[in-house]
Design a binder for these strands. Sequence first.
RNA 1: GGCGCGAUAGCAAAGCGGUUAUGCACUGGAUUGCAAAUCCACGUAGGCCGGUUCGACUCCGGCUCGCGCCUCCA
Length: 464
Amino acid sequence: MTIKLHNTLTQNKDVFTPINPDEITMYVCGPTVYNYVHIGNARPVVIFDVLYRLLKRNYASVKYARNITDVDDKINKASADNNETIGELSSRFADAFHEDMAHLQTLTPDLEPRATDNIDAMIEMIQTLIEKGHAYEAQGHVLFQVSTDSNYGKLSNRNVEDMLAGARVEVESYKREPGDFVLWKPSTDDLPGWESPWGRGRPGWHIECSAMINKHLGKTIDIHCGGQDLIFPHHENEIAQGTCCHDHGSENFVNYWMHNGYITMNGEKMAKSVGNFFTVRELLEKFPGEVLRFALLTAHYRSPLDWSEDTLLQAKASLDRLYGALRDAQLDAANAQHVKIDELENFIKDDLATPQALSVLHSLAGDINKTQGDEKSNLQQALRKAGSFLGLLSQNADDWFKWQPESANNESGLSDDSIDAFIEERLQARADKNFARSDEIRDELKEQGIILEDSKEGTRWTRG
RNA sequence: GGCGCGAUAGCAAAGCGGUUAUGCACUGGAUUGCAAAUCCACGUAGGCCGGUUCGACUCCGGCUCGCGCCUCCA
């Protein structure tokens, strides 16, 4: 079965045909590192991690780049507010981003270009755009002249006149036309800046992605991903820059554009500017990263996903069931084979149909709970492997059930050892048929959030 | 003003023109010292009004409501 992807460019679910099947190129817009990312920022990272895993399984090589924007006016402001240098601040939050994403079980991209390491490529691109008559200098700024690009608006399906009609666009006096956007802007001495043909300055937001794509991945790439809010103007402008710079003609800058929907809170878009957000970091205080990841996969990536406590509790309950089926299962399942693994793979190939893929995991769990012996073990391997396609179910079931937040440490709650001691005592009480004492211990542990389960193999416990 | 998205059972969330999505919750049963976990059983839901069709949640038209982009934004 072929891979199908919804392409914003065609507004259709298209069969994926790579430029070169031996090396797929994919680019995801990464974070601007000026504070902690929220769960909405994490959605594309997780979703397109599933895509990356899919491509890696189906093609010899995948080159996946995710940029880090480390030059930006928000960074400048945050560093001033925190009394911290720009470099310190951006590397601090880049590190935090990596930590958070690791908790979400995302694979590391093959390339993670930083804007500040690619200024030369941007300057070069801007120069070419000026030479070709697509950009002009005005009052220390360099602007892209939108009217020179006859394809402008192709991705977002809009034209400049209609956009300006009801929009709130501030028109700077130095713009030739209201839709023109900044490629380069002047920096004062207190701001980060680089020498350029137009004086000391810094790049506009859109140019970094175009320049880094060209430099690291090529003239035309297979897939470019990001949130829906990037379609316009960011990605539209990337296309304008990329195609006008290299005379693409009828050739695309990017063949497949994929955009994820928003995380909402009570139906409204989660956004830093609105303030209605949860950082990944604070959510990790209450739930394992895998629960966050699972929750992000419960809805189709192009649909909105409303975020609430209940979203997380349901994701937790689902994972409890899946890990329950993996008790005593071995970790390595690379060689597992099962029709349901293929079934799940086909769902992912169908424009990342993760809700359906998750239903396959549940189906396997049900099968496991109904069997014993070798067949059970085979099915467990199948579940393990199927889960890995989604970046799930990679840990020991016991570890899963014993999870507690990092901040819990020894101050609060019971240690694993003391829980085991209580279980020993209760075991003796049960052997003595002292069920009153046995139940008392179970109730006491329950008050501390520890749930006991008696089975033929002995007593197990989980942190509820 | 332009462009786009959504409305499914108690909750979350999919596919599909006619056959069980799935998970959680609920109820009954099996199992258990009692529980928990697990297994079995159990839900004709698809915003409103028309149309196409032998048949529509699924296609077409209209309406209502909600959301988003056009400004930094995943």
